[in-house]
């Protein structure tokens, strides 16, 4: 077994008096596709946001690609990470948001090329060539000149995926990327993600309420409840034969709501 690309070790996180993560620990192998499921408020989105450094942690530590995320070595010990360290660590990770977060004042093409040009010093022409390949992959090459406001939700989300991929991260985080979409637009986004999973060896972490998709997509499923992992295992096991009562209760509700698991 190769060294894990992500190690979360006894991480706790509170928002004021609200404890969101409770001594959370798990590891992710390089190339692994992981689905994080569980009721809302269970902490699954929070851990994704922490990995993207959008939130800090209160205790514990996290290693990404062999290096501490929020700490850096200093004088033989560890010090809190400075901007420079975070900047270097963020380069390994990309994230796609529930609400796309495209830049509304930039064209689709500029949305995708902005970060490579600014953060990696890629020449404009090269960045555009690469962006066109990515847009082609997500099926939106013909929308390169469009503004985000002219796109449907599903198209926006596919642009957001292309934008995150343009930085060639080792790890991609998907935070409920289909939750804000009209039902008929969900599939086009999921298809892109399926292709990504098949064609790349990127490590992918996915927070989702689409149990059917999690089932097909993931190598392993983590079931979250109240800030920690209650149960984990291969999707066939979690979805068809869950051992923990809380997992069973959660899935029962999902099935009662009419979803395929």
């Amino acid at each position: 077994m190769p060294a894990p690309i992500i190690e979360v070790d006894r991480v706790s996180k509170s928002f004021g008096p609200l404890r969101v993560l409770e001594e959370l620990s798990f590891t992710v192998a390089p190339g692994e596709k992981l689905a994080l499921i569980g009721p809302s408020g269970s902490g699954k989105t929070t851990i994704l946001r922490i990995l993207m450094t959008l939130e800090t942690i209160n205790s514990g530590h996290i290693k990404v690609d062999g290096e501490y995320l929020f700490h850096m070595p200093k004088n033989g010990g560890l010090a809190p990470a400075d901007e420079r360290h975070l900047h270097r660590m963020r380069a390994k990770i990309g994230m796609v948001f529930q609400l796309f977060n495209l830049f509304p004042h930039k064209s689709v093409l500029d949305n995708v090329t902005l970060a490579p040009i600014l953060t990696k010093g890629v020449a404009k022409a090269d960045a555009e060539r690469q962006a066109m390949e990515l847009l082609d992959m997500v099926g939106l090459a013909d929308k390169a000149k469009a503004m985000p406001a002219q796109l449907s939700g599903g198209q926006k989300q596919r642009v957001a995926i292309a934008r995150a991929l343009a930085l060639q991260p080792k790890i991609m985080l998907f935070d409920e990327v289909t939750s804000a979409l009209d039902p008929e637009l969900v599939e086009e986004v999921l298809n892109v993600m399926r292709r990504l999973a098949e064609e790349t060896d990127m490590t992918m972490l996915l927070v989702t309420h689409e149990m059917g998709f999690a089932h097909d997509f993931a190598d392993r499923v983590l079931f979250f409840d109240r800030g920690s992992i209650v149960e984990e295992g291969p999707p066939d096991e979690i979805f068809t034969n869950p051992k923990e009562e809380r997992t069973q209760a959660f899935l029962k509700k999902i099935i009662a709501a009419g979803q395929r698991v």
Binding site: L54, L99, F103, L167
Partner: peptide, 28 residues
């Protein structure tokens, strides 16, 4: 705030975010 979070996820520095993402939208 989600625009700033997109900046972080795209690894822009605070200044780059301000200059290329926030101020152009705020200026209008």
């Amino acid at each position: 705030k989600e625009q700033q979070e997109a900046c972080v996820a795209l690894n822009l520095t605070r200044w780059q975010c301000l200059r290329h993402v926030i101020v152009p939208q705020a200026f209008v």
